[in-house]
Design a protein around this nucleic acid. Structure first.
Length: 629
DNA sequence: ATGCATCGCGCG
DNA sequence: AAAGCGCGCGATGCAT
């Protein structure tokens, strides 16, 4: 039996140097970092506390045979990174109670050890027994240090007990995924291209300065950023600011976003001053490129890029971004992605699962004609658009413009409509939202269709795929059954049983609906953020996202198991990142081609419980993440 | 100063 | 009766 070593570090912090102010990566790599003490235990043995200089702490830690043990902590990304980066100790396998708790209580209970101890009745977590703020290890009195040690030991005990409870809810595969996500952080291999990032920051800033130079010097950043102030700017130029009804609050709000057509129309206003202020507002308002580039440069100066993903961060099991650095929303085709590089002699391999959610919907609903089309590689977006427009549509067909001699896609717009239908209408989207979605469009494409036309297309979708409509209805029925505690199941590709706590997935995990309640006009469930409305179409969406996540994450685990077998100190080989339907690995350059083939093979194979689900994928390898497609 | 709600925008 | 959904971060504006 492999030992479980449970451990908890106490580290120096002060008002500004703390995890609430800076990222975990900055905190651990900071020059002020200091271990005050550490408590650890083996299996259910006694917990030991140690506090001493770094060298002695290392000696203390080395007694635990960590490289051959399972390592357990609450928030392992933190303790595991300290252990790996400061003490060069990596366990056989990471276990993390914070990750393990998320699928069970993530919706309703915070992730802190205190909140979880209370939830699972594990006794009191010690309150702050020692004032540690701003105190280095040497500043503590012997008594305070001893009390701090007791507090820390208690945390270790609670973590170990919590683990014994939570492990009953987990599976070996989910444990592997937790370990993998921790290793993405504690064992970083991707590098950031500092020079490229510095150049990019310069470009972004110059671009913004140029926009500012185009407008009246009296108008500053504040006038552009604030809605009220910007509205005044427009009024002074004789333009009545466009308004809209807020989707969330139903209140009137200024329509100043890049998706507000009326606002975008002002870019072509007769008065060049209006054009300039609108252009400046749109250019200055988005800060992602600038702030993220600055963060990246900071990391580039400190070391390789640790990737923090919250295991089961979403209700549906998808990961979410963490540590003030969401790597799941980097702009596509942008410099930030290009700045993420494989280490010397290595390549990045990225493979993503093609239209996984659309495939899962069709398969779950038993919409067999759609499933067969996916299986046969039919371009389903074009096929549905053909249906919509009553003429052959092929979004991939290229033609040469006789005037300019340039290549273009004549069915680009129709293809976009087809895509929007397949991706959106499967979850019950109505005509109004469909019309709005087409209007938002994508960069360089905004479609204005009549509401009658929107209704026609929505109805066409529902007539074409009646089993999907039937699935919404079956899923809707599950709400009534779950509330009343009756057995119920739905789904054709796989049968999903409903329980009191939610819908049971094929891997034994649940899509939970805590305190599901029948309200006046529908059903709600509780989260920490309040009550959420739930209905048939949305259940289908949640379940489909959850199923797609299981498919891709199990494939990711399988890929990593194989790569990990080849991984050595010099020739790194591992999965480094996932973005929902995408798996990214780093391997030696010479293995890139073979790895792409291997990953593609794995990601073209459905799991046993979904033998009839046609999965497909596409991928690429390159020296940078950004060049992988 | 700090927390919270809201919006916009990036990704899937 | 009808209803695309799932995230995190940065910014403003208001409350504390």
């Amino acid at each position: 039996m492999t030992d479980i070593v449970t451990l908890d570090f106490e580290t120096y912090y002060d008002k500004d140097y703390s995890l609430s102010k800076i990222t975990t990566e900055q905190y651990i790599r900071h020059r002020d970092f200091e271990v005050i003490g550490v408590a650890a235990k083996i299996n259910d043995g006694p917990t030991e506390w140690f506090s001493g200089p770094a060298m002695q702490t290392k000696k203390f830690l080395e007694q635990f045979d960590i490289p051959n043990s399972y390592l357990l902590a609450h928030n392992m990304a933190f303790d595991g990174a300290i252990l790996a980066w400061k003490f060069c100790l990596k366990p056989r396998y990471y276990l993390d109670t914070l990750s393990m708790a998320r699928p069970i209580t993530g919706l309703t209970v915070g992730g802190s050890l205190a909140a979880l101890a209370k939830k699972f009745c594990l006794g009191e977590k010690g309150t702050e027994v020692v004032n540690a703020l701003g105190k280095r290890r040497a500043d503590f009195t012997a008594e305070d240090l001893a009390r701090y040690g007791e507090y820390c030991k208690n945390d270790v005990e609670i973590t170990y007990t919590l683990y014994q409870i939570l492990r009953q809810f987990s599976t070996p595969k989910e444990q592997y995924i937790i370990d993998l996500m921790i290793r993405m952080y504690t064992d970083p291999v991707l590098k950031l291209d500092r020079d490229l990032l510095l150049e990019h920051l310069q470009n972004v800033q110059v671009k913004k300065e140029k926009l500012m130079a185009m407008i009246d010097a009296a108008i500053g950043r504040d006038e552009l950023m604030s809605n009220d102030k910007f509205a005044e700017v427009l009024r002074k130029l004789g333009v009545e600011p466009p308004v809209k009804v807020s989707l969330r609050t139903n209140k009137l709000a200024y329509a100043f976003s890049k998706t507000d057509q009326e606002f975008k129309d002002l870019l072509e206003h007769d008065d060049p001053r209006v054009q300039a202020v609108v252009s400046a507002r749109l250019g200055v308002k988005s800060t992602l490129e600038e702030t993220r580039t600055e963060s990246f440069i900071g990391i580039a100066d400190r070391g390789p890029l640790p990737i923090m993903l919250n295991y089961y961060g979403a209700h549906t099991g998808r990961a979410s971004g963490g540590d003030k650095m969401n790597l799941q929303n980097l702009p596509r085709g942008g410099t930030l992605r290009k700045a993420i590089r494989a280490p010397k002699g290595h390549a990045v391999v990225a493979v993503d699962s093609s239209q996984i959610e659309a495939r899962v919907v069709g398969w779950l609903a038993g919409q067999n004609d759609l499933v067969e089309d996916f299986r046969n590689g039919v371009d389903i977006y074009s096929k549905f658009a053909t249906n919509v427009y009553g003429r052959p549509v092929n979004r991939k067909r290229k033609e040469i413009d006789p005037q300019t001699g340039k290549e273009y896609f004549p069915d680009f717009v129709a293809g976009f409509v087809g895509k929007t239908c397949i991706l959106g209408l499967g979850y019950g989207m109505g005509k109004d939202k469909f019309k709005a979605t087409l209007k938002i469009g994508q960069p360089g494409l905004s479609l204005d269709i009549e509401i009658e036309e929107a209704e026609r297309i929505v109805n066409l979708y529902r007539d074409t795929y009646p089993n999907i409509v039937e699935l919404w209805s079956a899923a809707g029925k599950s709400l009534d059954k779950m509330v009343r505690g009756y057995d119920y199941e739905f789904g054709t590709g796989v049968t999903l049983k409903c329980s009191q706590d939610g819908i049971i997935l094929p891997n034994g995990m649940l899509v939970r609906y805590p305190n599901l309640t029948k309200a006046e006009n529908g059903y709600t469930y509780d989260t920490r953020k309040g009550k959420i409305k739930i209905y048939g179409g949305k259940i289908v969406e949640n379940v489909v996202q959850a199923l797609a996540r299981i498919v891709v994450f199990d494939q990711m685990a399988k890929i990593d198991q194989e790569l990990r077998r080849r991984d050595t100190l010099e020739q790194r080989s591992k999965v480094v990142l996932t973005v929902h339907d995408e798996v990214v690995a780093v391997v030696p350059e010479k293995d890139a081609e073979q790895t792409l083939a291997f990953m593609s093979e794995v990601m073209s194979t459905p799991p046993k419980w979904a033998a009839g689900l046609p999965v497909a994928c596409e991928g690429d390898f390159a020296l940078t993440y950004g060049d992988c497609k």
